[in-house]
Simulated assay, not measured.
Amino acid sequence: MSRPADDPPAPADLAGVFRVATVRRTGETVRYVGDPLVPPDAVDRELRSTFAQHGYDVRLERQRPAGEAGQSLPGLGPQYVLVAEPTDDGGIPWLNVALLLATIGSTLYVGASGWYYIPVMEAPLRIFEAWPFAVAMLGVLGIHELGHYAAARYHGVDVTLPYFIPFPSLLGTMGAVINIRGRIPSRRALFDIGVAGPLAGLVATAVVTVIGLSLDPIAVPERVLNGGAEYAFRFHDPLLMQALQGLVDALGIGTDYGPNEAVHPVVFAGWAGMFFTFLNLLPVGQLDGGHIVRAIVGRRQETIAAAVPGALFALAGFLYLTREAPPIGFGVWTLWAFWGLFATGLAYAGPARPTVDERLDGGRVALGVVTFVLGVACFTPVPFEIVAAA
């Protein structure tokens, strides 16, 4: 995946930015051991173009502990290393492509059979009638992940393209992820990468939701109404969905629903965007919320993260005690119990650790608070439940 690189920059090419004590080469990776002559978080930004001209990506890593406020400790020798690796050649990422195609297939299938009430087994080619649902779902998830990707590339952090996760049930997918392969140079970079995904995804979610609420409803076929189903899913709207419904009604572009009609499936893509956004903003581990809180409060993030599993388990217990048992034997409390276990593992693994652990500026702190407020607007304690069919 790497193109042939030229000879790496000479130590003299880094003059004024990084003082090189020694150069080490392992295969195609070149390490310049030394100390910055500018603030550490500015090093890779200052030298990015220099290394790019030679066909290399570069990142700064610390190899010795820092003193107070990130200052160098005298007498310990060089404390940093510039790591240069050949630039990705932009070859076809076959795994990403395969997962994307599989997720397109699963969302088309679920959308057609579950939300458009199309008998896919009888008319397989009608699966493509569900393209609005698939485009909306993958658009919301993809824009969220591309927000992370763009912010990471801006800060010179090595990151993969999104990996979509196919899941042929309910929504057709379990989301998408990217893999951050390089070190994160600073708290500012960590914050920008963490916050870019939820904000970009929420913009896409709002657009998709408004479009969906303005589309004509779907007629539920008689075979479904009289099909003898024992149970059904009932979805509950978070505050953001309710606010967008009010906006659509105020603009006069909403639609009315008859007794045998259902909301357009595109709306469920918006609902999923809100649900995934809230989960991603849990302030624990490597989730987006964990990145944002780690950037804002530093190492105290681990204390906050430790409380998250307890809160989720408490919510699960409350719902278990206060809500009626569903017809198939397990309720929404199991969702939060599962996320309590998952959050426990994330908290144990710990958060991302930026190379330079400097204090975040006030503007980014304010933006982080706004992002969490939007995340709360995407929350409902009972996002869905299983009920006896009417």
Score class of each variant (00 low, 15 high):
125 L>S: 15
125 L>W: 14
125 L>D: 10
125 L>V: 14
125 L>M: 14
126 R>I: 14
126 R>V: 10
126 R>A: 15
126 R>H: 13
126 R>P: 13
126 R>Y: 11
127 I>C: 06
127 I>M: 11
127 I>Q: 05
127 I>S: 07
128 F>K: 03
128 F>P: 06
128 F>E: 09
129 E>F: 15
129 E>V: 10
129 E>N: 15
129 E>G: 15
130 A>W: 01
131 W>Y: 10
131 W>I: 10
131 W>S: 07
131 W>P: 12
132 P>Q: 09
132 P>I: 11
132 P>K: 09
132 P>M: 13
133 F>N: 06
133 F>I: 09
133 F>H: 07
133 F>G: 08
133 F>E: 09
133 F>Q: 09
135 V>Y: 00
135 V>K: 00
135 V>R: 03
135 V>N: 08
135 V>P: 01
135 V>D: 07
135 V>Q: 04
136 A>N: 13
136 A>S: 15
136 A>Q: 06
136 A>E: 08
136 A>D: 07
136 A>V: 12
137 M>C: 06
137 M>W: 03
138 L>Y: 02
138 L>C: 12
138 L>I: 15
139 G>F: 00
139 G>S: 00
139 G>R: 00
139 G>M: 01
140 V>M: 02
140 V>T: 03
141 L>M: 13
141 L>P: 07
141 L>A: 12
142 G>P: 04
142 G>Y: 01
142 G>D: 06
143 I>M: 09
143 I>F: 02
143 I>Y: 02
144 H>T: 13
144 H>Q: 11
146 L>Y: 14
146 L>H: 05
146 L>C: 06
146 L>Q: 02
147 G>L: 09
147 G>K: 04
147 G>D: 09
147 G>V: 07
148 H>V: 08
149 Y>A: 12
149 Y>G: 13
149 Y>D: 11
149 Y>C: 13
150 A>H: 13
150 A>S: 12
150 A>E: 12
151 A>I: 07
152 A>D: 04
152 A>V: 06
152 A>H: 03
152 A>W: 00
152 A>I: 04
153 R>F: 03
153 R>P: 04
153 R>A: 05
153 R>K: 13
154 Y>K: 12
155 H>F: 07
155 H>Y: 08
155 H>C: 04
155 H>T: 05
156 G>P: 08
158 D>S: 15
158 D>L: 11
158 D>T: 14
158 D>H: 11
159 V>P: 05
159 V>G: 02
159 V>W: 01
159 V>S: 12
160 T>L: 08
160 T>H: 06
160 T>R: 06
161 L>D: 12
161 L>P: 12
161 L>S: 15
161 L>Y: 11
161 L>Q: 14
161 L>C: 12
161 L>N: 09
162 P>E: 08
162 P>A: 09
163 Y>H: 04
163 Y>P: 04
163 Y>V: 08
164 F>V: 02
164 F>W: 00
164 F>P: 01
164 F>N: 00
165 I>L: 11
165 I>F: 01
166 P>Y: 02
166 P>F: 03
166 P>V: 07
167 F>N: 01
167 F>C: 07
167 F>E: 02
167 F>I: 05
168 P>G: 05
168 P>K: 02
168 P>W: 01
168 P>L: 05
169 S>P: 03
169 S>L: 13
169 S>A: 14
169 S>R: 10
170 L>Q: 11
170 L>N: 02
170 L>S: 03
170 L>K: 04
170 L>V: 09
170 L>E: 02
170 L>Y: 07
